[in-house]
């Protein structure tokens, strides 16, 4: 099953490599990973998407907790949550395709943020699981570049991950 794990960790230079190293050393897979400092510059928040059986996810959370730089974590998928991913896609846009891509972008709530005579750059934000659907929908056009931020997420309601 897909899990989104949110981690608060010390904002130190080695912290990211510790988490990445843990995943590769123990053979866990990372689907996406997004990390940046929080409102407190000494703390980074990492959102990590992974897949595995309940046993593996239990081990992953335990191993992450054991990491000395990790302050606190939650598995967002255990409760109600919101997840978002941003994607920037540059596509070939010429002739009739220009109108077609514009329409498609509207349908997916994406915005065209940069235009040349032959290309569009589209910004899309949505649930991580839907990003593939947008890429698929663009199937007939030529995608020149795809940039995804990886998923970030937060709990719904009053529940917070903070120290």
């Amino acid at each position: 099953m897909r899990h989104i794990i949110s981690i608060l960790m010390e904002n130190e230079s080695g912290a990211l490599s510790r988490v990445a190293g843990l995943f590769s050393a123990r053979g866990y897979n990372i689907e996406s990973l997004a990390v940046a400092p929080t409102e407190d510059a000494t703390i980074s928040r990492m959102t990590l998407v992974t897949r595995g059986s309940d046993e593996i996810i239990e081990q992953i959370t335990k191993q992450l907790n054991k990491c000395v730089d990790v302050i606190k974590l939650i598995d967002l998928t255990e409760g109600e949550h919101i997840e978002r991913e941003m994607m920037l896609i540059k596509v070939k846009a010429t002739g009739e395709l220009r109108e077609e891509i514009k329409r498609l972008s509207d349908i997916f709530n994406a915005r065209i943020i940069d235009v040349t005579e032959t290309t569009y750059t589209i910004e899309w934000t949505g649930e991580g699981t839907k990003s593939d659907a947008f890429i698929e929908a663009l199937g007939s056009t030529t995608i020149l570049e795809t940039v995804r931020t990886g998923v970030s997420g937060i709990s719904r309601g009053e529940k917070c991950l903070r120290i």
Partner: peptide
Amino acid sequence: IDPSSISKNVK
């Protein structure tokens, strides 16, 4: 003392 040792190999 190490939670990650528990239920790692044997439930």
